[in-house]
Nucleic acid binder design. Sequence first.
RNA 1: GCAUCGAUGGUCUAGUGGUAUGACUUUGGCCUUCCAAGCCAAUAGCCCGGGUUCAAUUCCCGGUCGAUGCACCA
Length: 581
Amino acid sequence: MYCKTMAETSDIYEKVMEVARRRGFVWPSSEIYGSIAGFIDYGPLGAMMKRNIENLWRSFYVFQEGYYEIECPTVGNEAIFVASGHVKEFADKMVQCPHCGEYLRADHVAAENGIENAGTLSSGALQAVLCELPCPACKEHLGEAGVFAFNLMFETTIGPGSQRKGYLRPETAQGIFTDFPRLLRFYRDKLPFGAVQIGKSYRNEISPRQGMIRLREFSQAEAEIFVHPDEKDHPAFHRYADYAAPLLTIARQIDNQEPAGITMRAAVDEGLIANEYVAYYIALTHQILTAIGVDPAKLRFRQHLTDERAHYAADCWDAEVFSGRFGWVEIVGIADRTNYDLRSHAGHSGTSMTVFVPYDEPKRVMKRRIVADMGVLGPRFRGRAKAVADALAASDPGEGGARITLDGEEIFIPADLYQVREEEVEIRGEEVMPHVIEPSYGIDRMIYVALEHSYAEEEVDGEMRKVLRLPPAISPVQAAVFPLMNRDGLDAIAQTIAERLTRCRILAQYDDSGAIGRRYRRQDEIGTPFAVTVDYDTLEDNTVTVRDRDSMEQVRIPVERLPEVLSALISGAITFHELRA
RNA sequence: GCAUCGAUGGUCUAGUGGUAUGACUUUGGCCUUCCAAGCCAAUAGCCCGGGUUCAAUUCCCGGUCGAUGCACCA
C-alpha cells in the first residue's frame, strides 16, 4: 500500500532528524503540552550551530561588506505593514463552502470558472461572482458564502484596552526600510550603503508540513543595500568577477536545460543578470552556502520567471539547494527591488526617503520662474491667495494669462497679475530615491541543508559510522578531548587541556566515558571535527594525538602547540593533510 | 483546511481487552594501551482528552503531532 519510493526519499530526512532530535540539535517546541506544527526549539547543539552560521554570515555581510547590523522589534504597528503592502497583499482571499465546509481560494474558484483577472478582483466583486459558482469539492452552489481574507501575518494588539493593532513582522526588512532616514544620516548621506538584520519573523502558514523548511516562526538574515538607481556597479565587483556559479536563467528554464556555470563578469556582460550588485551577491551567496557545507553539486541559482517575480522587481534569483527529501528548496532570495519599498514608505509616512546627490560641478540652468503679484492676488483671493500663487508657480502660462485648477475650480489669472522671470539658477545636485538590492537568507533552511548534506553513513570494520561532516566553523563543538584510559593521571591531563582550549575560545568537550572508539563515534555523530587523545606517550614526551573526523587519521603534536594548531585547522588556515605532511 | 494512514522507554521496535518484548543508547561498577569489544547492575515507555467496559496501551469519538494525496506556498 505504501509507496516505496517515497519511503526511500524520506530516508535521509528521517535519519538526519533522528540524529538532530536525539543529540540536541532540533526539538519539537513545547513538546510536553503537544507541539504545534511550524514551531521548533533549537537544542544546545542546534543553538550553537545556528549561532555559528549567523556569525559566518556576519563575517561576510558585516565585516567584508561593511553593512552594519541593526535590530528592530518583531512587533510592528499596523501602519508599517499597510505601507509595505502586507496587510493588503500578504493574504489569500478565501471562502468556505456552506455545504461541505471546504476552505477554498476564492480567486482560484473564480479563475477555474473562466472569470478573467480573478486575482485582481475585490472581495466584494469575488463574492458577487461566486454566488452562482459550484464548490469544486461538493458541486453545490457557493451562494452567500462570505469571502474573507486570510492574512498570513499574526495579529496582535498593543497596550491596554487593545486599541492599537499590531502585527508580528513577516520579514525583518521593513525595520530597515523604516529606519532609512536614520541610516542615511548614520552613513553620512552617501550612497551606496547597506544595513543588515538577523532575527525572527513570523508567518501564519496555512499548513506547514515540511519540518524545518516551512516554519511559522523562523530566522532570517536580510541585507538591504541602498544604491544609486543609475549606479548598479558594485565597487568591489572585481572580488567576484571571475567567480562562477551555476545559473538557471529564465531562458534555460523555458528550454528545460540544466544550469550553466558562468562567471559573474560574463553573466552581467551578457545581460543574464540585471547588474553587478545582483551578480555580486549571487557569488557571495554561493561562497557562504558552500562554506556552511552545502554540496556545490546540489546548489543552483534560479532566476524568477517574469510572471513569478514581483511587478516592481528588476531581477530576482533564488539560491536553491537540492534536498533528498524536499527537492530543490529556496534558501536565499536575491532581488533588485528597485525603489518600491522606499517609495511606498515615503508615500504613506510623508517622510522623505531620498538622498541628496551632489553633482560634480553645480549646474547652471536658466529657469523660468512665475512670480505672482501678491499685492493684487492677496486682496482678490484672500485666504486662497497662497494656494493660487503656488498653483501659478507650477503652471504653464499662455499668452494672455494662466489657467490654474484649485479645488477642482478652474481659474484664469490674467498676465498682469504675475511676472515671468528667466533666471539663472545653480543646481548643486538632485534628490535620488535609492534602489534596494536585497539578499534574504532563511537561516533555518540553511541549518537543515547543512545537516542533510553533511550527514554520512559509512561502514567501518563492519559497523555503521554516522558522521556529520560539518565544516569546522559551524560545528557546534570544535574539539573533543579524551584520556585514552581513565587512570594513571591521563584524565587529569586531558581535563587541563580541555580547559586550556576553552580559554582560547575553542569549544572543547571532555569525555572519559566508555571505550575510546565509542567516544570518537559520539563526536562523529555531532560533527566535532577534531579529537585530542591523551595517551601513555603523553606522559613521556608531552605530545597528544589529534584525530581528524573525516579521515579518522591521527597526527601527534606537542601539547603546547594545540591551541595554535586547532585554531588553524578550525579556521581553515591549514588542512589536516598539510598538518600530517 | 479536507481525505487516508500512523503514534509503544532517549532511539529503533515486538505485542496485547487484564500495565508490555528485544536491541541500541544513557548512568554506575568491573575490564580495557586508539575507533560503537566484553561482563554485572540500574534508569526509563503504551501521544492527549472523552466514551464503551469490572478492566482500554489495545475498541469507538474528538484533538495534537507526523507521513501521503488534494488544496495552499506573498
